[in-house]
Write a protein that binds this DNA or RNA. Structure first.
Lengths: 219, 219
DNA sequence: ATTACGTTTTAGACTTGCCTAATTTTATCG
DNA sequence: CGATAAAATTAGGCAAGTCTAAAACGTAAT
């Protein structure tokens, strides 16, 4: 009763979607995997047959505990490999997502655990996303999107969206990395764009598109 | 015009078979991949269509230069990953083949080249097999199977069959590793079994099955 | 309560990669 | 040279994973 790479990708997507809304819809899965809804429906029947999701026709689905653990395992592998690529192989943070998409399907628990050890049992990946431990437990965090953060308060960047290399390269130009200090100088109510001060030095204008993909913690 | 993992496995198998006999036969490929000849015939048509092999019905096949390079690329990746697992992740030489079978299909030339660099541009993998450089060039060697080696001469183990964990564990028990010194003490003509002296210390009896999977160089 | 629209599922088709069974081709041996 | 055995190919079928087009369903608004 193994899970294929394709099934693993579905479980990972469903896990992530579950974090923002449940039950998860067919269309949301289709959009996040860039495939058609009809294809998703087929797979939902298979995942349901394997007891990885609880699925009622026309009414969305939930991960079962078994499916949730399977999803977490993939995320753990993905994030450990990403960190490995950055820390040990000198890749940039905008280069690692695509390679980790492949590496996450390598089947060897021992390898994953040794990777974890080699990296010193890290809590977060290069984009600031939390890495679950070998029991599937995530550390808790208190971040919010920069777009919702208060003006004038001292903020620390805790994570950024991982899957868009263009965004990451843009952040490099702004000098924004995980741990960077930010303060919101001015906010435009109309389009949610803002002017921010980075590390008490330079000031930049950023759009809502960018501000919604940066997550911060009030210091 | 990408090559799938399956196609890569065929090319790797064909490359290895080409080293001992050309043209390569349908049956030999089927045996080495543990699939049926009929399945191989189908794939041969596809590989031929992609100009990776030169194939005449009922008369065997040869790799084209393009196919040969593709095969070498997979072998290079497989062997570099194996060495990585042993050198950097503390796996034993009998544990790495299966994991490398998966890792060899990761698509990132940059990753492979950095692996090569991290390992110091190694010439051989943990089983003594040669690692081609990034241009696909193998170092030359002068080894022969222990079963054919001369009696009484000082021999050095240069490589062993990689794909049978049981054999590798057996060699561990005999104290045989890459670089070990061996001398053939007595040979039985009848079954090609022999008695050998390992590192000028212990003497062991080994069957032809084992002796044919150990490769040596006369010192 | 009915309609209209968006979401979801069904139906039918295609590709890859595998199988078994039947057939064809080649090579060998008397 | 012809029979026959071994090797290879063809034919037909199956599962996974994808698609498009059509039908079914659910919901929100009138």
């Amino acid at each position: 009763m193994k899970t294929s790479s394709t099934e693993e990708n579905y479980l990972k997507a469903i896990f992530k979607l579950s974090e923002t809304a449940t039950p998860v819809s067919t269309t949301d899965i289709a959009n996040s995997l860039n495939i058609r809804s009809a294809t998703v429906t087929d797979m939902l029947k298979r995942l349901s047959g394997k007891k990885l999701i609880r699925y009622e026709k026309y009414h969305g689905l939930y991960l079962t505990e078994k499916g949730r653990q399977a999803g977490i395992r993939i995320i753990r592998k993905h994030r450990l490999w990403e960190l490995f690529l950055v820390e040990k192989m000198r890749f940039r943070w905008d280069e690692v997502h695509e390679i980790a998409e492949q590496l996450e399907h390598i089947q060897s628990d021992e390898l994953v655990n040794r990777l974890d050890e080699l990296l010193g049992f890290p809590k977060t990946d290069p984009h600031g996303d939390p890495i679950p431990d070998r029991n599937g437990i995530f550390g808790t965090r208190h971040q919010s999107p920069l777009v919702n953060a208060p003006k004038g308060a001292p903020l620390t960047v805790t994570s950024v969206s991982e899957n868009d290399p263009g965004l990451l390269q843009h952040l490099d130009k702004l000098g924004i990395a995980i741990g960077t200090q930010i303060e919101i100088e001015t906010k435009e109510d109309y389009d949610h764009s803002m002017r921010i001060i980075v590390d008490d030095k330079q000031s930049f204008f950023i759009s809502e598109s960018v501000a919604s993909r940066i997550f911060v913690e009030v210091k």
